[in-house]
Structures are given as C-alpha cells and as structure tokens.
Design a protein around this nucleic acid. Structure first.
Lengths: 158, 158
DNA sequence: CCTGATATGTTATATTATATCAACCCTAAA
DNA sequence: TTTAGGGTTGATATAATATAACATATCAGG
C-alpha cells in the first residue's frame, strides 16, 4: 500500500497504466520513449516520491544503464517537457505526474515532516488575473507549498 | 529610471526607505542588521533584479566584505527569514522584497525575454482551499510564473 | 549513398549550497 | 571579575545540483 495525496491506496496498477499512457502519447506524437527515458519514468512511478536526479542516477547506474549525470538529466528533460514528470523547484527533485495526459497547472504540497509530496490542482483564474493585471503572459507556473500533511500535524512524526 | 512591476519609476528613494524599514524592524525585533547583511540588502535593492548568490558575492568581494560563499548565504538566510529578500526558486536567485514589512504570499512574474522579475500578489484563498481539502497545513508558499512581460510580447526583445 | 534530425556515450566543468571548526563579541548571571 | 551562553564571523573544505562540449550512433527520407 502506498500514498496518493495523503491517503492510502494500492498503486500497483497505476504504474502500469501510467506507463501505457506515456507509451501511447509517444506513439501518437512521434517521440521516442527510449529505454533510459522509460526506465527513469518507471523508477519515479514505482518510488512514488520526489527524488533527486542523483538518486535516480544511482538506481540507473546499479542496473547498468549509464552512470553519468547527462543520462538522467536528458531523460528528465524529455519527461518534464512532455508532462510525465514534474520538477519540484523547492526541493530540486523530480516527481512522476499524478495526472498523466492532462494539461494542468499542478499545485504541490510538500510535507516537511515526512517529505511526502502530493500533487493536486487549484483554479488558475486568480493567477491569470494577477498576471494579466500587469500585462504579463503566463507560459509556465510553479506553485508549491510547504507545511504539514494530516499525518504529521498530530504526532509531529519526523 | 528603473522598473517596478513592469512599469517605469524612479526608485532612488525607495532604496533608502526600504533600508529604513529594515533597520526599524531589526531594532524592534532585537535582531542585528550587521554590515554584511545590510550591504547584501542594499545591493539587492540597488540592482533591483534577481541575482544569484555568487553575483552578490562578487560585488561584496570587490568591496572587501568577504569573499567566501558562507558570507553571502548567511546574509541571505537572515534576510529571507525576516522577509526582506525572497528566493526565486525557479532561478536559484534572490530578489529584494517589494513590500517590506508586509506578511504576504508573493507571486513572482519571471520574464524570459528580459529576465525581469516582478513581484505582485494574488488571493491566497484558492491555495488554502486546495490544501485544506487534503488536510494539509500551509506554512510557506512558492508561487512563480514564467512567461513574457508586456515589453517582450511585442518586439520579442531578448 | 548522403544528409539531417534525434539520441547516446564520455569527459570535464560550471553552478549552487552547506558542513565544520575556531575565534570573536557582547550580555548577563554567578 | 569571571564565566558561560548566544549570536556572529572567518576560513577551509566539500557536497549537491546541473550543464557544456564533442564524438559516435542510429535511422528515416531524399
């Protein structure tokens, strides 16, 4: 059992479906989900947590899929460009997208008690309104909040 | 003449008033605005742009105020802790606060045409609602958007 | 075949940030 | 006055994150 949001669920199946979604997207869009890219995405889906690039690299390397930083950064560039993976700027870490296929403006909830990161969404209108009030045209958004998840508010479990 | 938001204004005076605000705050709260901290804040106010820690360090160093990274990172820690400076996570850069004294959840507009960063605000209710729907308690927020400022949308001036 | 676009392998380096420990300065308690 | 503690600084070293640069490989289309 694993967490999604901050609730429990069995995500054995969701790794498989996310991979299928990614493969379908790549076929449709004529881009290549090469072995390294595929494996990085699988790792992030399986681990279901925000991981540093070098954490991912260590796993890749143990599997003999390349041990140099560009390997993982290139894969992450590809995966983030196509929306399969998000970068958590506040943590310099990477997280598999919970809503593959959507085009959305994700909001990340970072718990500093247990280091869990949950992805959710919020209305984008307030953001657009504030930006357009200054004549600014939004292309990408970074919305991250840090605090305590439900489980860490009570016991203060670190 | 300099920019604030994306409009022109003369900000000669605002450096001085921001420094006075900071000094008053430090007196009131019994914390020390030491020479290094003061100079880092002045630099960020004078430059009126997002600067990397090492850019600031280069200026400090040229003035003989210490040439090692901890000097500037300690100053930035202090200044961000007390709200005089914000970190722009997306850029790994630091920016003097445009609303000294307020307690606010700032929104940063990052123009990738001219590298200007404007600080504004938005209603925080949507954020709080989305977080509390998952039982999450917010402590800090990072809201940054990247795109094009009014001046860079037309001429595409890089 | 040749070429251009895309991807990978490899080495090296750039950029951002922190750990650690000794010294200093001030305040306030003993 | 001495001593202890908190906060700050100085200095050295290193950790953590990310990219530049260039050679090689693969493959589809002309």
């Amino acid at each position: 059992m694993h967490d999604i949001g901050f609730a429990k669920h069995d995500h054995t199946a969701c790794v498989a479906t996310a991979m299928e979604t990614a493969e379908a997207f790549c076929r449709d869009n004529k881009v290549q989900l090469t072995p390294a890219r595929k494996r990085v995405l699988e790792i992030l889906l399986e681990q279901h947590r925000a991981m540093g690039a070098y954490d991912i690299l260590a796993l890749l390397s143990a599997e003999g899929m390349g041990s140099q930083p560009p390997v993982v950064y290139r894969a992450l560039d590809f995966l983030t460009k196509h929306g399969f993976v998000h970068k958590i700027e506040k943590l310099n870490a990477y997280l598999a997208c919970s809503h593959p296929g959507d085009r959305h403006s994700p909001l990340f909830l970072i718990c500093h008690g247990c280091d869990t990161v949950a992805e959710t969404t919020m209305p984008t209108a307030p953001l657009k309104d504030a930006a357009s009030a200054l004549g600014f045209k939004i292309e990408t958004t970074v919305i991250e909040v840090e605090g305590l998840c439900p489980g860490c508010q009570t016991g203060d479990a670190a």
